[in-house]
Amino acid sequence: MKRAGLPVLSLIGVPMRRAALCAVLLLCAASLVATGGTPALGQSNGPIVKPGDTRGTGFHPLSPLLRLFGVDNNRRTRLREQRPKQRIQPRREPVKPVIVEVPKDADARVVLVVGGDLAKDLGEGLEATYSEVPSVRVDTLLFADEGLTTEMGGEIADRMQGVVQGRRVGAIVVLIGSADTRDFTLAGGAELQFRTEAWADAYGRRVEALLAAARRQRTPLVWVGLPPPKGRERRANFRYVTTLIKDRVEAANAIYVDVWDVFLDEEGGYTSFGPDVEGRRRRLRDNAGVGFTWPGKSKLAFFAEKAIARVLGSSGAFAFEGVEDDPNFVVLTGRIGSPETELAGAEDARNAPIADTPQYRLIVQGVMLPPASGRVDDFRLSAP
Score class of each variant (00 low, 15 high):
residue 1 M to E: 11
residue 5 G to S: 04
residue 9 L to Q: 12
residue 11 L to M: 12
residue 14 V to W: 03
residue 15 P to Q: 14
residue 36 G to Y: 09
residue 38 T to F: 08
residue 39 P to W: 00
residue 40 A to T: 00
residue 41 L to R: 00
residue 46 G to K: 02
residue 53 D to E: 15
residue 54 T to A: 15
residue 55 R to D: 15
residue 57 T to V: 12
residue 62 L to R: 04
residue 66 L to Y: 15
residue 73 N to S: 09
residue 74 N to E: 15
residue 75 R to H: 10
residue 78 R to F: 06
residue 78 R to W: 02
residue 79 L to T: 11
residue 81 E to M: 13
residue 82 Q to G: 10
residue 83 R to F: 12
residue 85 K to W: 15
residue 86 Q to W: 15
residue 93 E to I: 02
residue 97 P to H: 01
residue 101 E to Y: 02
residue 107 D to P: 02
residue 110 V to I: 05
residue 111 V to H: 04
residue 116 G to H: 11
residue 121 D to V: 08
residue 121 D to F: 15
residue 122 L to S: 09
residue 124 E to D: 04
residue 128 A to S: 07
residue 129 T to M: 06
residue 130 Y to M: 08
residue 131 S to P: 03
residue 134 P to F: 04
residue 135 S to P: 03
residue 135 S to C: 09
residue 136 V to I: 15
residue 137 R to F: 03
residue 138 V to W: 02
residue 139 D to P: 09
residue 144 A to W: 13
residue 149 T to I: 11
residue 153 G to M: 02
residue 159 R to E: 14
residue 171 A to W: 00
residue 172 I to Q: 13
residue 173 V to E: 02
residue 174 V to R: 12
residue 176 I to G: 08
residue 177 G to Q: 06
residue 177 G to S: 14
residue 177 G to N: 10
residue 180 D to F: 05
residue 181 T to M: 11
residue 181 T to K: 12
residue 184 F to P: 06
residue 186 L to M: 13
residue 188 G to E: 14
residue 188 G to W: 00
residue 189 G to M: 01
residue 193 Q to R: 15
residue 195 R to L: 09
residue 196 T to R: 14
residue 197 E to R: 14
residue 199 W to T: 04
residue 201 D to R: 14
residue 202 A to W: 08
residue 202 A to L: 06
residue 204 G to F: 06
residue 209 A to I: 02
residue 210 L to I: 08
residue 211 L to W: 08
residue 213 A to P: 06
residue 217 Q to S: 13
residue 219 T to M: 04
residue 221 L to N: 03
residue 227 P to W: 01
residue 235 R to S: 10
residue 235 R to N: 06
residue 235 R to C: 03
residue 246 K to F: 07
residue 249 V to F: 03
residue 256 Y to P: 03
residue 258 D to V: 10
residue 266 E to H: 06
residue 268 G to C: 06
residue 270 Y to K: 11
residue 271 T to P: 02
residue 273 F to G: 06
residue 278 E to L: 05
residue 279 G to T: 10
residue 280 R to Q: 13
residue 289 G to K: 11
residue 291 G to V: 07
residue 292 F to T: 09
residue 295 P to I: 03
residue 300 L to D: 00
residue 301 A to C: 10
residue 303 F to S: 01
residue 304 A to R: 11
residue 312 L to C: 10
residue 316 G to R: 01
residue 317 A to C: 05
residue 317 A to I: 01
residue 318 F to L: 09
residue 319 A to I: 01
residue 324 E to S: 06
residue 334 G to Q: 07
residue 336 I to R: 05
residue 337 G to N: 10
residue 343 L to S: 04
residue 349 A to K: 14
residue 352 A to W: 03
residue 354 I to T: 12
residue 355 A to E: 08
residue 369 L to W: 00
residue 369 L to M: 14
residue 369 L to G: 14
residue 371 P to N: 14
residue 371 P to K: 08
residue 372 A to T: 13
residue 373 S to Q: 12
residue 377 D to G: 07
residue 379 F to K: 11
residue 380 R to M: 11
residue 384 P to H: 14
